[in-house]
Design a protein around this nucleic acid. Structure first.
Length: 486
RNA sequence: GGCCCCAUCGUCUAGCGGUUAGGACAUCACUCUUUCAAGGUGGAGACACGGGUUCGAUUCCCGUUGGGGCCGCCA
């Protein structure tokens, strides 16, 4: 890897219709590596299987990249638009006797394979079409039988040095003559991948460890085509709680889902960077001036520090990380980020937010240090906005005769507060407590539950001020009335 | 059935022959506080097992066990 400026990496998502967090991490590692070496990061869509792909399906990936702030890439290139291009390499392989036509019926082969496995037998394509005699071959051609192209695996051990896993070795006799071109003329993944990585002058192939098994196949192709091989770095897999490869059945695997929950892209990146990689010292949170310190992260990122064992995705730690980022957000920025969630949960309309911008900012200031994800605003702060919030069952503890009587009495006191602001409210409450020989907290707790439904939350007096006199009074009255009716 | 890979607290990890095995999340105390969150302090918590190599293994080698991945005319 001659010159550092020549580093070229790529991320090659398959168009599945959503953006897997594992793919996001692969993209991140490629992106950080390119950035670290001032190289190029290329986005290439692997959509050689036309029937399963569409431009629509790649949308989630493109949007996800933008959301994460990784939108400085070359491309995207679409393999589906480069089809002709792959054929000449296939033709060359056939010409050189390094690949051959296969007329077998895929369904038949699939059944043979399935039967073998069911029988606890190994199964590998037996090259029956390679040994076809001239007459049989002629017959096949004349009958217009569909033909795919298989790569003739040369016999020798394939060894390469993976940047994260070290030496990986595999005997080619354990690799079957895999198909490189489908009967419909389209190339398959391994072929297209090799050709493109070569044509795009990719220097480092950084991808998930689930591709380790493909690497020897691809190396064999590089050799057969006499192309220069890139370096390979495989990333440990991201696992679900059950330790199997994180997949849709684990639930939250789509980046979009995290976005919708109110995870911040910065927190997401910070967390993902730490999955399988570590800077080597104790730094985990890369925040500077309220946002991700991408400079330091980039500077410190190296492939050599990537771990080779798989990592379980820990949502709890992600949430903690997210809270770290939320807390340090500039307050006006936090407000702007929260707005979509406020409308999403029908807490306020855009117009109302416009009209009560100062009030909203104060609510935001109180809630900011308490949210793990932005969508928490609904269950934790709904009482600021609406009357239909839920009451914690702990309210039961405050429904005894004595408390109700005290609250009833305090209500009158509240009515008398002229400017309903936190200071006067606090003075009134403490004075009332003194006068009635009770502790302030004996009043504060029930008052909080009656007015907010919660046992905890932001400082009470500021909260009451923002709820407003009218609503505070009516909420307390409502509880007292309900109790009386029972 | 074949092949490949992995193995330090529950989880993410540091460690690259000699450490009281460090940090973070979670957890448990205590503290701060009107409550919650955040913060502070402290506790509990790991080298899968068995052989080697070595004066000495968490660290190197082999095996066992466990876990994972791949074996499509998907990528």
């Amino acid at each position: 890897m001659n010159n550092q400026n020549k580093i070229r990496v790529r991320m090659a998502p398959s168009p599945t219709g959503f953006f897997h967090v594992g793919s996001a991490r692969t993209a991140l590692f490629n992106w950080l590596f390119a950035k670290h070496h001032k190289g190029k990061f290329i986005l290439r869509v692997e959509d050689t299987d036309v029937e399963r792909s569409s431009e629509e399906m790649i949308k989630a990936v493109l949007e996800g990249m933008t959301w994460l702030g990784m939108d400085q890439y070359e491309g995207p290139y679409y393999q589906s638009k480069r089809m002709d291009f792959y054929r000449k390499y296939v033709d060359k392989l056939i010409e050189d006797g390094k690949a051959y036509y296969c007329y077998c019926n895929p369904q038949d082969l699939a059944e043979e394979r399935k039967a073998a496995y069911a029988n606890k037998q190994d199964w590998k394509y037996d090259r029956r079409c390679l040994s076809l005699n001239a007459a049989d071959k002629k017959k096949k051609e004349e009958s217009n039988a569909p033909r795919a192209v298989r790569f003739l695996i040369p016999e020798h051990r394939v060894t390469y040095k993976d940047i994260v896993y070290g030496e990986i070795s595999k005997d080619s006799k354990d690799i079957e003559d895999f198909v490189i071109q489908r009967a419909n003329g389209k190339p398959t993944y391994n072929l297209a991948c090799v050709i493109d990585d070569h044509e795009m002058e990719i220097t480092h192939v950084i991808r998930g460890a689930d591709h380790i098994a493909n690497t020897p196949k691809q190396i064999l192709l590089y050799e057969a085509l006499n192309l220069q091989k890139p370096e390979f770095a495989h990333l440990p897999l991201i696992l679900g709680q059950d330790k199997s490869k994180l997949s849709k059945r684990h639930g939250a695997v789509s980046l979009t889902w995290y976005q919708e929950q109110g995870f911040l892209p910065d927190a997401m990146i910070n967390y993902l960077a730490l999955l399988g990689w570590s800077p080597g010292d104790d730094q985990e949170v890369f925040i500077k001036n309220g946002k991700l310190d991408i400079e330091i992260l980039t500077e410190r990122f190296t492939l050599e520090r990537i771990s080779s064992s798989n990592a379980v995705f820990d949502t709890t730690k992600l949430e903690w990380m997210n809270q770290q980022y939320i807390m340090q957000l500039p307050r006006s920025h936090f407000k702007n980020l929260l707005k979509p969630f406020i409308t999403e949960y029908d807490l306020m309309t855009a117009q109302e937010m416009e009209n009560k911008t100062d009030w909203l900012q104060e609510v935001c200031d109180l809630m900011q240090p308490r949210l793990k994800v932005l969508s928490d605003i609904d269950k934790q702060g709904r009482f600021f906005f609406k009357e239909d919030f839920e009451y914690d069952k702990a309210i039961e503890k405050h429904l005894d005769e004595k408390t109700l009587a005290t609250m009833d009495k305090f209500l009158a006191e509240m009515q008398r507060i002229e400017s309903f602001e936190q200071k006067p409210i606090e003075l009134a409450l403490r004075g009332f407590a003194d006068d009635n020989s009770i502790k302030a907290r004996e009043l504060i707790h029930p008052l909080r539950v009656f007015t907010t439904g919660n046992t905890g939350g932001p400082p009470l007096f500021a909260t009451l001020e923002l709820i407003g006199k009218e609503r505070c009074i009516s909420r307390i009255e409502k509880i007292l009335k309900q109790k009386k009716e029972k």
